[in-house]
């Protein structure tokens, strides 16, 4: 599938229009965006290709594909690090951003106005001093339910579109939480949570968690989770020696994490695998990035991988979308 891939890096947002082979940034002088801004997140619009949102250390930006530039979105987050951005898949004008310090900001009108959600995350934490949001997800069963993970504080859940939040950490061996996936099967719901100390599973909608160590990987630092297709039991997990680490692995499960298989990679990762990039248009096309700049691609749902030649320094997020609209470079 012809697609555009996006990599959020510590030197701006990079784009690839040729299957991840070559990468470039938008034109520096007129692109509306400082090319060396630290970019932590990029979110593709589910209906409007090219209209990606980018969270940076200088505010929130929206790509304007028709004009080939970024448009700055005024928000209260300008002085914060915008680490995560998510849109309601059924109502893309509903945007949730997560920051460092760990706060959530919500816009119901495509960024025209913002409210600060009453997340009440810890204001300080061990190791990284300042808490931060590591993932935001709309519940696939009911998008009025929003989930967020916070490093280091745990898993938060809102059942009223962000107006109130509950910390759900009973049973978490470590509340340094990174990512979640949801599987709704005939026997009920499974939620997997990646933490710095192993995978955790909840079978009661996050009321309680059970730690699920696996001996497949020699490491316990689980970072990113992704399903291969909506509500799929096929799950990919990234695990590394530590953050940022010196190596990483991809684990693949076909039974919602009950068993895991180590996936062979064509080149050793140089650090922890920080994120997977998927799109519903083709669940088998998946990217992953290591935090220190490597890019890998799979076209068979994560069974086999190819490493891309280009490396991009420090990458914090990677994603892609179908290439229905050109952007100027």
């Amino acid at each position: 599938m012809k697609h555009t891939a996006y990599a959020a890096t510590m030197q701006g947002l990079w784009l690839s229009h040729d299957d991840g082979e070559s990468w470039a940034r938008l034109l520096t002088p007129t692109g509306g965006f400082y090319n060396e801004a630290r970019c932590w997140c990029v979110e593709a619009h589910p209906m409007c290709p090219g209209e990606v949102l980018v969270g940076t250390d200088q505010g929130l930006y929206r790509m304007n594909p028709a004009e080939g530039r970024f448009d700055y979105i005024p928000s209260p987050m300008d002085s914060l690090h915008i680490l995560q951005v998510a849109r309601d898949p059924n109502d893309p004008d509903f945007i949730v951003c997560g920051t460092r310090p760990a706060e959530l900001f919500i816009s119901e009108n495509n960024g025209e106005s913002w409210v600060r959600a009453p997340l009440d995350a810890a204001t300080e934490c061990w190791f990284i001093n300042t808490t931060r949001v590591t993932s935001i997800q709309f519940d696939p069963r009911d998008t009025d339910v929003i989930w967020a993970t916070v490093e280091i504080d745990g898993v938060f859940k809102s059942e009223d579109r962000g107006k109130s939040w509950t910390l759900m950490i009973h049973g978490l061996a470590d509340n340094d939480a990174h990512d979640l996936v949801f599987y709704d099967g005939e026997l009920g719901r499974d939620i997997l949570a990646s933490t710095e100390d192993s995978m955790h599973r909840s079978m009661d909608n996050a009321v309680s968690w059970l730690q699920e160590p696996t001996d497949v990987a020699p490491f316990v630092y689980y970072r990113s989770l992704v399903q291969v297709g909506a509500n799929s039991g096929i799950v990919l997990a990234s695990v590394g020696d530590k953050p940022s680490g010196e190596t990483g692995m991809v684990l693949r499960s076909t039974d919602v994490g009950k068993t895991w298989q180590t996936i062979a990679l064509p080149h050793p990762p140089n650090s922890t695998i920080w994120g997977f990039g998927t799109h519903q248009a083709d669940p088998d096309l998946i990217y992953f990035c290591t935090i220190f700049g490597q890019i890998f691609q799979s076209k068979d749902g994560g069974i086999t991988w190819a490493k891309k030649r280009r490396e991009l320094g420090e990458i914090r997020m990677i994603t892609w979308e179908p290439q229905d609209m050109d952007t100027k470079q």
Partner: peptide, 9 residues
């Protein structure tokens, strides 16, 4: 224990 550097709103 040293210097800590939290960012506080």
């Amino acid at each position: 224990a040293g210097v800590t550097t939290p960012d506080i709103i």
